[in-house]
Amino acid sequence: MSAIGPASVIANGPAFEAPDPEVPDFEASVSARTRTARRLAPSTLLGYALPCGVFAAAIAAWEALVRFNDIPPYILPAPSLIGATLIKDWAILFNATLVTLRTTVLALGLAVVGGVGLAVLFAQSKWIERSLFPFAVILQVTPIVAIAPLLIIYLSSGTAVLTCAFLVAFFPILSNTALGLASADHNLIELMQLYRASRWQGLVHLRLPAAMPYFLGGLRIGGGLALIGAIVAEIAAGSAGQGSGLAYRIVEAGFRLNIPRMFAALVLISFCGVVIHVVLAALSHLTLRRWHDSARRKGI
């Protein structure tokens, strides 16, 4: 009782005019953020310089190891030789990169359409989810290397490779999106109910945006897996005498003991993987930075 006595009487007046104790608070936090960013600039620079330096040192050590020990190129080529091969064989390797990348991107796109579509279907009814989920799980747990030879028999080799890449990218997108659609704030769901929102409106205005962080997480995993799926399927198809992607070039170079070219193709595969990762991470960051906690500066 005493806590609300005369001592705590607040001055009268139009109360909503200015939320004074709160406004400066907000502005302070904004300016504090920019200040922190400015102060962090040199250490951010170091943050880039350090990994680059360590990477360069590792390459230099590799080069030195090969040169000082006179290791023949068919056992371990020096980085400089790999670089030279990359330039010499650029026409072949670049075309192969395009083939593999096209397969990967196409497979990822199909996995997004299929995964999100099926997740939305699952969200409509528990029974649909119960009936179809086992198929998705079986496809997921069966190693793609084991399925690839069958697919190559049934389908044309290009389609088979695409299907393999699609199958591995599909599941993480499906399961993450399904989880995201199911984890919308229950109070917001009730709010939608209160305002007589249709099923479609609930999906568009609540469930899909709520699932976005989960979907983007699944997309990042799926992106990496699509590349792996494409490579695995190319190797399987390549041994059947077809295909012209990077993995096929690796197999072919292996038959000819052209080790430097194998390494050059490997470098390109890694590069593709890194590019996919960076693009998807950037997409995720741009989409979530304004509202999701995952896009915040790390505290701990």
């Binding site: 109070n187 917001l188 709520a210 304004r290 509202w291 999701h292």
Partner: peptide, 9 residues
């Protein structure tokens, strides 16, 4: 509601 229940996005 007891919580603000806003859409964070």
């Amino acid at each position: 509601f007891q919580e603000p229940t806003l859409m964070p996005w």
